[in-house]
Write a protein that binds this DNA or RNA. Sequence first.
RNA 1: GCCCAAGUGGCGGAAUGGUAGACGCAGCGGAUUCAAAAUCCGCCAUCGGCAACGAUAUGUCGGUUCGAGUCCGACCUUGGGCACCA
Length: 855
Amino acid sequence: MSRYSAAEIEAKWQTAWDEAGLFRATRSADKPKYYVLEMFPYPSGRIHMGHVRNYTMGDVIARYKIANGFNVLHPMGWDAFGMPAENAAMASGGHPKDWTYGNIADMRGQMKPLGLSIDWSREFATCDPEYYGQQQALFLDMLDKGLVYRKNAVVNWDPVDMTVLANEQVIDGKGWRSGADVERRELTQWFFKISDMSDDLLSALDGLDNWPAKVKLMQANWIGKSRGLQFAFGMTEEAHGFDRVEVYTTRPDTLMGASFVGISPDHPLAKAMERQDPKVAEFCAEARKGGTTEEAIETAEKLGFDTGLKVRHPFNPEWELPVWIANFILMDYGTGAIFGCPAHDQRDIDFARKYGLPVQDVFVPAAGEEGHTRAENGKTAYVPPKTDAVRYIRGFAGAEVQNGSDAVDAAIDFCEARGVGQGVTKFRLRDWGLSRQRYWGCPIPVVHCETCGVVPEKKENLPVRLPDDVTFDVPGNPLDRHPTWRDCACPKCGAASKRETDTMDTFVDSSWYFARFTSPHADTPTVAEDAAYWMNVDQYIGGIEHAILHLLYSRFFARAMHLTGHLPEKAREPFNALFTQGMVTHEIYQTRDANGRPVYHLPEDIDRESQTVKATGEKLEIIPSAKMSKSKKNVVDPVSIVTGYGADTARWFVLSDSPPERDVEWTAAGADATAKHLARVFRICAEIAEMANGAAAGDDELLRAMHKTIDDVTKELESFGFNASIAKLYAFTNTLQKTQAGGTARKVAARTLAQLMAPMTPHIAEELWAILGGEGLCAAAPWPKADPAMLKDESLTLPIQINGKRKAEIVVPADMPPAEVEKLALSNDAVVKALEGATPKKVIVVPGRIVNVVV
RNA sequence: GCCCAAGUGGCGGAAUGGUAGACGCAGCGGAUUCAAAAUCCGCCAUCGGCAACGAUAUGUCGGUUCGAGUCCGACCUUGGGCACCA
């Protein structure tokens, strides 16, 4: 009898699958198609356990669908543009291209031993000119359809390095290299008009039945549809060419609590004042300090500057309000100006208390004490949910007691009727800025001509290729300072012109790769027949961190690709089902250096038992699990796991224990246990393979357990219950080990076990299938079917509760009528004893579930 | 600051509103062995009790229900996102 050797069997069966062409996807009319896709990786150089978990989940689905007769598309590629390649070039010389393609080769080499059912013939990297050239073609088509335009937008500006910084390069408001105070600076940039589709992107969420509710909710909140009032405050006197300040508010019902008008430092009025008044300029410069993230702006100290200008309240010309410039007002949202009602907005009350502005209640709780004075002295605004009824003490429209939503509607109607502004619907979603002042990205294919202006490049000149001869020894965009690359002829008039040097946001690359996989090497972005056949992605799998941006941008792109004729109507929502998986975590092992700073240690360098560092014997501090990261040294390298235990162990482990949407903690003990379990399955099955055929008393019991397991595992796999299906497989293995059944039944059961394990641990399953006399490849065998007749139990155990507490249980025939169950329950000894002679008030019998006696 | 999640034994976790702790890890006891490794069998939430059994228990506090880990409200903690990390 042979022993389980992962190294031998894994290579053998991977070759067998390859030679059978099992995973090569071709269009076929006689099978239903199934497209399963995992979010493609960034080629950082090493695969990590998170990748293993992500791709194993997709692989389980893919293999399960193959066994169920589907024509499966399961591709893989590389999200290959991006900053780390440039950072590597800056740090250690070399070229981003060499770094990236080297990493891709390494990672492909690390991934292949996992035995994934991937059609590698469709592989591409987004930095392949073949791919980004088609992306440029898409860009031109979108430009043509009016989906792309240019406008000013703010970026993080490092005034020392004279360069634009990514948000992650801004640390506590300072540039990561220079340490200089970062400022927000405006630049002319390219934008996708995603806001044109706000309403559609929002309402179409309803149709995404197989998306997690939390992702839909996050997207809905991000799009942020709101109804409010847009109106103007007239200024007491004209200043800087302005006679009014246009504001937008979602709470017009609080208009009588207005205390000031606030404008963004980037508001045209603020800018006009800034040009003439050094004090304003000084304030605006201060207000623009810090990064562009909403988090930085929202959490920054609230700063205000009283312009000295005054506006009149729309309902009362005598009532004058001051105009302040405030750093927390965003020019990008609404009109860049607000009115502040401190009593009912936390930000406004913080601001009002700081600058001594009045605070006046508009409404108080509907029930409760009169003269609610929270706003009078307090620092906390009264902001009840809009669905709560409140009493308006300074209301002007609608009932005295009403909820916030009704009051807003009434206020809008009231204002519209009096010509004070109008009700408008606005979205929080902003247009997608795609310009990046960086080298390692897809060049934006336009030309700047002195006479013709901005001119799209001709399609026959695509791809606009990145030049190879660039250096990263100075900050800034190498395309800008390249001696010749920018020079070109205007596609319209032929005059000497300059290329655009901005490249595209890498989110563009990942917003259509799923469509490209349907015809990965075509000389158009997609091919109609292929897209029509393979789209949509039936199951998309990736991290929850992509819940908003990547998925929203992809939904926009799919719509844009439909508008430009590159995708069929049905692919406007490209992902039929979405699953968001959790991270792989690990403990952190820490000691401290002489200065008390933490020093981290790799798992292989420590002794878990004695909690010491192997080399030095130093005592360790063990910090509970956190996301694996290089800096914390809590990484487990999949390659060493595959080499040491085999791919099947790595695959089984990352799927077991934790539900797939939650984080899973990698532990050495768990990996060890998994390897032992697989060896045990192998041993049990190998013994069975050598048994003589024949029947025995235990046959029926074993086969019933087998059918139950088929049923359970199938149901769990259909609903991403990988951990639960593994638990059922453990239980069935225990049954198979203890059974008294004869050889024939045992072989059937063992072959079924191999099949049920195959999506998770395909190599050992294939080997067992072969030694147990399975026909052909296990990976190609049809999925086992549970016999409904074998699933029915004749009797069942019912717990009996008294007032909801379990007191006894009875065994009854499965089909016993409730009245008889009740009689039986009440005559049960333990029940009689517990009742102590009391008469039950009520008896609840839930058929097949429980009996509850209420006294 | 804002949006979205998650909190259950020593540990990972299971549980269509219906017996809380399946399955696995660790631990403990036993078998096998010259011995060990490997393997096999059994026990294993907490407290009290010799036991039968009783009480407590799903982050905290309240609520709905015959019945709540599950539904509702508030809070605490941890994680994800916040538009130039991918």
